[in-house]
Nucleic acid binder design. Structure first.
Lengths: 287, 287
DNA sequence: ACACGTTACGGCAACCGTAAGGATT
DNA sequence: AATCCTTACGGTTGCCGTAACGTGT
């Protein structure tokens, strides 16, 4: 069986280009490092290094092994981190869940005594974190299926149309889709969460909307709408306070109840006893 | 430092629910398994199992560790597989590269003596294989950025319009976009490679095309077009022989030279000496 | 001479099976 | 009494540093 210690030596040799500097880096004797490498070679039945009096060189088999070795050491470090820090490596998309999520996380921490290490970012960033193991559980606005991961719907959140408080629409009873097509809509680019909702919920009229893209967070969208750059459709819970305070207006949109399904994503083989699973279950019931 | 042997014992205990069955599965003595678990516990400074006379139970920390432990053992097996089989775990999207790729792979094998373990599938399947380490290098029709991976353009392949040999268009000099909008186009659903090209290259007219989706491979599209279900846009190299043989027709599409960029994707930290890197370099120069 | 990697050797810790202990049903 | 996990103990193995060796600069 391969051992992490010998792999660490192999990585050091590959990175430093020699036995001696590798040994110095690891605080071992050169003999030990030599032994580690040849141990792996015996285990795998292949030679990893080309030994020449001029120096060492990675053979193809060694180069093949190197990324795997790095992955294993990294996973080991992550495992230690995940177990020792009593926290749950949790992530949430900034465009969705945090408004309703933070109170739930706080309550969960109080009740269980567990800590939630929250990382907030964009949906693709969170996806990358999940895939690389930096986070083990996340609330996301969309998820494309991936082997080894499990996504379940969390809650279906309504979207509202928001405008600046002094927008002409504010004095009208309701807005229809034709009105919307004549205005500028912030956000909603393809590939974003809102973009997906718009395409699914509005149908062909989406193509006639004049979208103003580049607003990659709900905060930016809010500021843009307040500044009169256009209108937008955002999660109702994300603008509740601004609407109450009169900083934003939410005219009624006719014939349309758009909503966004938020997802809880986690590793598929997470045992039910894992803190991450507990948190997911708690969110589910609270949702 | 954690050791793979002790982790293996821990996994067996977690999965079988007891020390004794775990020991039986591993061919060890119960004492050894007990020792392995408490070794991990000492190493991480946490207890992983709740010992009750009624039996063992995973604690939260143990449940947290379990997926990591599984990942490490799996990676170890993959590493052994990758190094011992002298092959390169390569993948190619069936909708793109295989027509032009297979001769190159054959030449590479002849020249280098290395073996290429080719896996052909859809773009999402290949993506999953790369992310999970089952393949270390791939030719794909699209790639969304992912940390730890590197994508470089391989070649820009032209697309051609194909129809059945007895299609009315065959007798015309050229076809324009309005004609296309009046026909049925096979494939091109959003999220597929062809779909992306169509949206990027045709612009708004895409929304007026009547797409017939569900044709998830170039082979299926070819058969559908031959059967007269509609027309399609495919890689020129994928239908060269059929067109030469008169099984398909390729009327000229006016004012439009669509092309699809194929990508070579591989692990970002692959050393230049790795067989996969050699293959990628060979493809690059041959492309 | 100097630097490098390998090999030989010896002390020491770690590994693992056997056997005994404590607790529960 | 039977089953289970744990602890104690001893033989064996493996690990690692020191030292010596061969080779190239």
């Amino acid at each position: 069986m391969l051992s992490l210690g010998t792999l660490r030596s192999f990585i050091a040799v590959a990175e430093t280009g020699g036995i001696r500097p590798a040994a110095r880096r690891l605080g071992l004797s050169p003999a030990a490092v030599t032994d580690h490498v040849s141990q792996i070679e015996r285990e795998l039945g292949t030679t990893l290094l080309l030994r020449r009096p001029q120096g060492l060189h990675l053979l193809p088999s060694g180069a093949t092994l190197l990324p795997f070795a790095r992955t294993m050491l990294e996973t080991s470090a992550r495992a230690r981190e995940a177990v020792t820090s009593n926290g749950i490596a949790f992530a949430a998309s900034s465009n969705t869940g945090i408004y309703m999520l933070l109170p739930l996380l706080a309550a969960f921490e109080r009740e269980t005594g567990l800590r939630v290490d929250l990382w907030v970012g964009s949906n693709p960033e969170i996806r990358a974190r999940l895939l690389s193991g930096l986070s083990v559980c996340a609330v996301m606005e969309w998820w494309t299926p991936e082997t080894g991961f499990e996504a379940r719907p969390w809650r279906k959140e309504p979207l509202v149309l928001i405008t600046a408080p002094d927008h002409p629409w504010v004095r009208r009873e309701q807005i229809n889709l034709e009105d919307l097509a004549a205005e500028t809509v912030l956000g909603g680019e393809p590939g974003s969460g809102t973009g997906r909702i718009l395409r699914a919920g509005l149908g062909e009229i989406v193509e006639r909307l004049s979208l103003r893209t580049g607003f990659n967070s709900t905060e930016a969208v809010k500021q843009g709408v307040r500044a009169g750059l256009g209108v937008s459709l955002v999660l109702a819970s994300a603008v509740r306070e601004e609407i109450a305070a009169g900083m934003l207006a939410a005219p009624r949109l006719e014939d349309l109840s758009l909503s966004k399904t938020l997802w809880i994503v986690m590793l598929a083989d997470t045992p039910a006893e894992a803190p991450a699973a507990l948190l997911a279950g708690r969110l589910k019931t609270a949702g």
